[in-house]
Structures are given as C-alpha cells and as structure tokens.
Simulated assay, not measured.
Amino acid sequence: MLKFVKNHMESIDGIANYPMISLMIFFVFFVLLFWWVFTATKEHIKEMGELPLDNNDQQNKL
C-alpha cells in the first residue's frame, strides 16, 4: 500500500510545492497571531478574560 502511495505521489507534477505552501500558511498565520497579541489593547484583553465570570449577569437579564 505504501509503495502504491509513493509511486502515485511521484507521478503528480509540482508535488514539491505543497509542503512549501503549507509551511508559508503556517508561518503567516502565527506571524499574524503574534502581531495581534502584541497590538491588542489591555482593556480588550481584560474584557475577554472576564467573560467567563460575567455569565451570572447575563442570566439575570433574561
């Protein structure tokens, strides 16, 4: 089975590009994530951190 998959993959033109594309997607995602983390305001981070604790307030409004 593995031999079939290896032979099949070798027959696909440009197969070597896919690992590079996936690496670039991975790298860009984490660069954007780090950029968002370092530029997020402290108020926003505090508000998001307190969301699980605010569940009681929302139940009282219903």
Rank of each mutant, 00 (worst) to 15 (best):
L2R: 13
E47Y: 10
M9T: 10
M9C: 05
Q59W: 05
E43V: 08
V31A: 03
K46H: 08
F38E: 07
Q59H: 06
N56P: 01
D54P: 00
N7H: 12
I15M: 04
N17F: 11
D13W: 04
T41W: 09
L53H: 01
E43Q: 05
I25A: 02
F4Y: 13
V37A: 06
I45Y: 09
K46G: 10
E47T: 00
F4R: 09
Q59D: 02
H44K: 15
V28F: 10
F34Q: 15
H44A: 14
L33N: 05
L23P: 04
Y18L: 12
E47C: 09
N7D: 11
G14N: 02
K3L: 11
M1G: 05
K61D: 12
K6V: 06
I45L: 06
I25S: 13
L51C: 06
A40W: 00
A40C: 12
F29P: 04
L32W: 10
I12D: 07
M48D: 02
V28R: 12
T41Q: 03
K61E: 15
L53T: 07
K46A: 01
M20A: 09
M20R: 08
D54V: 03
G49F: 00
D54C: 08
L33E: 07
V28I: 00
Q59T: 12
H44Q: 12
F38L: 14
N17Y: 12
L23R: 09
D54T: 05
K3S: 13
W35V: 07
F27W: 15
I21C: 10
I12T: 08
I25T: 10
L53K: 02
A16T: 04
P19D: 11
D54W: 14
F4T: 04
Y18S: 04
I45F: 02
E50T: 03
M24Q: 13
F29V: 07
K3D: 09
L51S: 00
V28L: 06
M24L: 12
T39R: 11
M1H: 13
I12H: 06
F4W: 01
A40D: 12
T39I: 07
T39A: 11
V31R: 09
W36K: 06
L53N: 05
D57T: 13
M48K: 14
K61G: 01
